[in-house]
Simulated scan of single mutants.
Amino acid sequence: MNQRRGVQNVDFQDRYERGYAAPRPDGMRGMEPQGPMVPPQQGGGVPYDSGRPRPRRGRRIRRLLISVLVLLLLVVGGTYFWIDSNLRKEVDLGKVVDRPGGGEGTNYLIVGSDSREGMSKQQEKDLHTGAAEGKRTDSMMILHVGAGDSTLISLPRDSNVNIPTFRGSESGRMQPAMGANKLNAAYAFDGPQLLTRTVEYNTGLRIDHYAEIGFAGFANVVDAMGGVDMNLDKGFQDKWSGADFQAGEQTLDGKQALAYVRTRHAFTGSDLDRTKNQQKFLSTLSNQAASPSTALNPFKLYPLMGAGLDTLVVDKDMNPYQLGRMFLAMKDVNSGQGKSMNMPISGSVGGNLAWDMPKVKQLVNELRSDDPVTVTSDR
Score class of each variant (00 low, 15 high):
Gly101Arg: 13
Ile213Lys: 09
Val333Thr: 06
Thr376Val: 03
Leu258Ala: 06
Glu32Ser: 11
Gly214Thr: 08
Leu323Phe: 00
Val96Tyr: 01
Arg206Trp: 02
Gly350Gln: 02
Lys331Thr: 12
Leu205Asn: 10
Ser283Gly: 15
Met305Cys: 07
Asn365Ser: 15
Thr129His: 02
Arg379Met: 02
Val10Asn: 03
Lys125Ala: 06
Gln246Asp: 03
Lys280Met: 05
Gly235Ser: 10
Ser377Thr: 12
Leu71His: 01
Val68Cys: 14
Gln279Pro: 14
Tyr20Gln: 13
Tyr108Pro: 01
Gly105His: 03
Ser67Ala: 09
Arg379Ser: 06
Gly227Asp: 04
Lys89Gln: 10
Val70Ala: 06
Arg262Ser: 08
Asn107Pro: 09
Val375Ser: 05
Tyr302Met: 00
Val221Trp: 02
Asn162Thr: 08
Ser150Ala: 14
Asp315Lys: 11
Phe327Pro: 03
Met305Ser: 07
Ser377Met: 03
Arg197Gly: 00
Met326Asp: 01
Arg5Glu: 10
Gln13Ser: 14
Ala185Val: 08
Arg262Met: 02
Asp49Gly: 04
Lys135Arg: 04
Val96His: 01
Gly347Tyr: 05
Thr137Met: 01
Asp223Ser: 13
Ser113Asp: 04
Leu272Arg: 04
Ala186Gly: 14
Gly308Met: 11
Leu296Gln: 08
Gln3Lys: 09
Gly146His: 07
Asp271Gly: 14
Leu65Thr: 12
Ser171His: 11
Leu363Lys: 14
Phe12Pro: 15
Asp238Trp: 07
Gln246Asn: 01
Arg18His: 11
His209Thr: 13
Arg29Gly: 08
Val111Ile: 14
Asn334Leu: 08
Ala21Met: 02
Pro36Met: 12
Thr374Tyr: 02
Val199Cys: 06
Arg59Gln: 12
Val97Asp: 03
Val373Met: 02
Gly146Tyr: 03
Met141Ala: 15
Thr165Leu: 04
Gly19Trp: 06
Asp190Ser: 12
Gly35His: 02
Asp310Cys: 00
Gly6Arg: 14
Asn342Asp: 12
Leu252His: 15
Phe81Met: 01
Pro358Leu: 06
Asn181Ser: 07
Lys239Ala: 05
Lys125Gln: 10
Arg173Ser: 01
Lys276Cys: 00
Gly336Val: 08
Ala177Met: 04
Glu117Pro: 08
Thr275Cys: 14
Lys239Glu: 01
Val228Leu: 10
Val145Met: 08
Leu252Asp: 13
Ala216Tyr: 13
Met330Ser: 09
Glu212Tyr: 07
Ser113Ile: 08
Gln279Ser: 11
Ile83Leu: 04
Met357Pro: 09
Met225Cys: 04
Gly306Glu: 07
Met140Cys: 09
Met141Ser: 15
Val228Ile: 14
Tyr80Leu: 00
Gly336Glu: 07
Glu170Ala: 14
Gln322Ser: 12
Pro372Leu: 04
Val314Leu: 08
His265Glu: 09
Val221Gly: 03
Gly118Tyr: 05
Gly347Ala: 08
Pro33Gly: 11
Gly351Tyr: 13
Gly43Lys: 03
Leu74Tyr: 01
Met225Trp: 06
Gln246Pro: 00
Leu152Asp: 00
Thr268Val: 01
Pro192Met: 01
Tyr321Gln: 02
Met31Gln: 12
